[in-house]
Structure formats: structure tokens, C-alpha cells
Write a protein that binds this DNA or RNA. Sequence first.
DNA 1: CATGTACTTAGCTCATCGGTTAAATAACCT
DNA 2: AGGTTATTTAACCGATGAGCTAAGTACATG
Lengths: 134, 134
Amino acid sequence: MPLDPLSSTFAALADPTRRAILARLALGETSVMELAKPFDMSLPAISKHLKVLEHAGLISRGREAQWRPCRIAPASFKQVDGWLGNFRRFWDESFNRLDGLLEEMKADEAVKAPPRSNRKVRVTKEKQRGRTRE
Amino acid sequence: MPLDPLSSTFAALADPTRRAILARLALGETSVMELAKPFDMSLPAISKHLKVLEHAGLISRGREAQWRPCRIAPASFKQVDGWLGNFRRFWDESFNRLDGLLEEMKADEAVKAPPRSNRKVRVTKEKQRGRTRE
DNA sequence: CATGTACTTAGCTCATCGGTTAAATAACCT
DNA sequence: AGGTTATTTAACCGATGAGCTAAGTACATG
């Protein structure tokens, strides 16, 4: 019965109302009432959607007096992107060129420049998104 | 009744069996029988899963004699990644540094090197993933 | 303390989903 | 033609999911 995290995250994303809520939250933290406004739907329905999103790790909630403000939670988004990365080579042509490019950059760096900052090393590590396995 | 494309794609991804099938297909095109082997599940069940994946645009299928080989279809993956891109700033720190970095690179390039290849221009355009709106 | 505001929980309905078995279809191989 | 292999369709079942209304909880304020 306890669905694995990735499954519950994808399930949560499979609903347009919930994706719209996330889109709203991308603009900033807000209350349940505020989130409910755009939808022609009862408040309990929204409440359920929020519970699903929370359970999926896509949002987190605080409490401020009688309000329960919601905000985007990064972790599950990151996990989804990580999973998606296993397939990135199928559709992102620049992804396939990236290894070569990084090699070239590192070679350039090593020969012609002292590490005047660590930014390029960072790039080699951080831009290699989407290669982690499930 | 006709769910929007993004919803049916996410729904299709919300099942571990289907994600496992996709993982297998990432290794290469193969038949239904082959795909079914790892699972303790009837063949019709697999057939249904494949139909869901196909409907979601995540796979496409050919026909070769009595086999109906399946392969990854890029389009829906790309769409998911595009949608996810709207939220990338919440979890990918390098994403926030990317604009600055690219500016710096272009500046460097313009001053110190003739365009011995177009690779860096390409990067500025193609690495700006995840900024399209739904 | 009483009332109002912001939510959540409970209990219901109906549709969809993931699985089953049994039967049908399709293409190949004597 | 008749059999084997690969895959789908049909019909069913139990569980889950999205929506509703009505009632409950929590905090704030007059």
C-alpha cells in the first residue's frame, strides 16, 4: 500500500489541478484560500489535492495562526529530474555533446589557465544532471 | 474523458512496472515477450501497460512479423522535462548561476579567441533547458 | 465566551486502474 | 490445412482516486 516515492510523485503530478497549484506556488508561498480561488471546486477538494502534493513531497506547509501556507519543496522535483535524466540522451541532442564539451573545457583549463576561480570545476560536476540511477 | 497529454504522461509514469519497462527500453528496442520476462505478471497485463505507455507518447511500436517491437519515443519525455523546467530554479543551484556563467563565457570568447568552432554559441542556446511554459 | 475565518475530516458516489482468465487474432512453419 | 508463437481483446473484480456535502477543529477577535 505504501507506494514508492517516485510513483506517488508522478501520480501527484498527473492531475492538472495539482499542476496548476504548483504553478501558482512557483510564484511564491501562499494560503489554501488563495490557492483555491482560481478553481471551480469545493475547498475540501483543494485540501485533498494539497495533501496529495504534500505526501508526494512536492510541497511543504507551515502554520501561521489560522493559515497553513504552502510552498514548493525541492526534493521530489529533483528526484523526478534525476529519473528523467536516464532518458535525456533520447531527446536532448546537446546532452550527447556535453561530455565532449566538458572534456575539451577541462583540457583547455589545465593547459592555459591557473584556476582563477572554481567555477569551471563546478560546472563539470553540477551540469551533469540526470545521470543518477533510480 | 480525454486527459490532456501531460496528465496522461505523468499518469503513465506513476507505475513502477511501466517505469521498469521504460528502463529496459532505454537499453534498446525489444519485443513484448522480452519485456514481460522480468515481471511476475500475466502477458495481458504487460500488454495493457504498453498500451498506456504508447497512449502517453512514451513509446512507439513497430511490427515485424508476429512481433511488435517497442522503443522509447522522445516527445513526451521532452514535454515532461520542459514542464519540470519551470521549477528547476527551486532545486538546481547551478541553474541560477548559469546565466551569469554563460555571460562570462561569451565575453571571454569574444575577446580572446576566434570562433574556431561554434560549440559555445550552441551551448548558450541549447543548455537553456526548462524555460518553456506549459 | 461567542462568532467568524480558515481549513480538515468523515462519509458517500462514481469512474478509472491494475490485475486476472479465457478467447481471439495474426503471422510464421511445416 | 494445421500447429506453434506472439500479442491483443473481452469480461470481470477489488482497490484507489477525484469530486461532493455536512460536520468538525483551530485560531482570532469582538
